[in-house]
Computed example of a mutant assay.
Amino acid sequence: MTQDALTKLAELGLTLPAAPAPAANYVPFVKSGNQLFVSGQISNGPDGLITGKLGADMSVEEGAAAAQSCALSLIAQLNAAVDGDLSRLVRVVKLVGFVNSTADFTDQPKVINGASDLMVAVFGDAGRHARSAVSAASLPLGVAVEIEAIFEIN
């Protein structure tokens, strides 16, 4: 699956970034048995942090793109955890997405679809997962989206 996942990313016009370093006192991932828990990855693109508040100064489409950037970082952390062997992925178990949004914004699921859709596009059925998509009054550094993940690996 390593080549397949990287090929799928390339077909989508995406490149796997380097796994981001932690921004505070935590580790980027923890392996426990056959589960990999990846710390929240914030929306970050080639031009830097993707900031904004959904329902105020960002569209749902912009939010979904921010969520996709989080998914790329999650895959990068997965890749680091399995020493570059993405074929060790059994499945994406769960995503938990936080959306920096106004009190009346209700399209958090549509925003987090940016990450969910990428997981399925890259990993096929193994990318289908359980999920939460919740609103946050603010997120670290003013980012638009933060997503954490649980993966099953072998």
Rank of each mutant, 00 (worst) to 15 (best):
M1N: 10
D4W: 02
A5G: 13
L6A: 04
T7L: 12
L9S: 02
L12E: 14
T15K: 15
T15F: 11
A19W: 08
P20V: 03
P22M: 07
A23W: 11
A24Q: 12
V27E: 03
P28G: 07
P28L: 09
F29A: 06
F29E: 02
V30M: 06
K31C: 06
S32L: 12
S32Y: 07
G33S: 05
N34M: 08
N34E: 13
V38G: 05
G40L: 01
Q41L: 09
I42Y: 07
I42P: 00
P46L: 11
G48V: 05
G48D: 09
L49H: 11
I50C: 10
G52M: 10
K53P: 00
K53M: 10
L54Q: 03
L54K: 02
D57P: 02
S59L: 01
S59Q: 01
V60Q: 07
A65Y: 05
A66Q: 01
A66D: 00
A67L: 09
Q68A: 00
L72D: 01
L72G: 00
I75D: 02
A76R: 00
Q77R: 06
Q77W: 00
L78W: 03
V82F: 14
V82L: 13
D83N: 15
L86A: 08
R88D: 12
V90H: 06
V92P: 00
V92H: 05
L95V: 11
L95G: 07
V96W: 04
S101M: 03
S101D: 03
A103W: 01
A103L: 07
D107F: 02
P109Y: 11
P109Q: 12
N113C: 06
M119I: 01
V120G: 02
V120F: 05
V122G: 01
V122L: 02
G124E: 15
G124V: 08
G127N: 01
R128E: 15
S132I: 07
A133T: 01
A133W: 00
V134N: 13
S138W: 04
P140M: 13
V143I: 12
A144Q: 14
A144N: 14
V145C: 15
V145P: 10
I147Y: 14
I147R: 14
E148T: 13
E148Y: 08
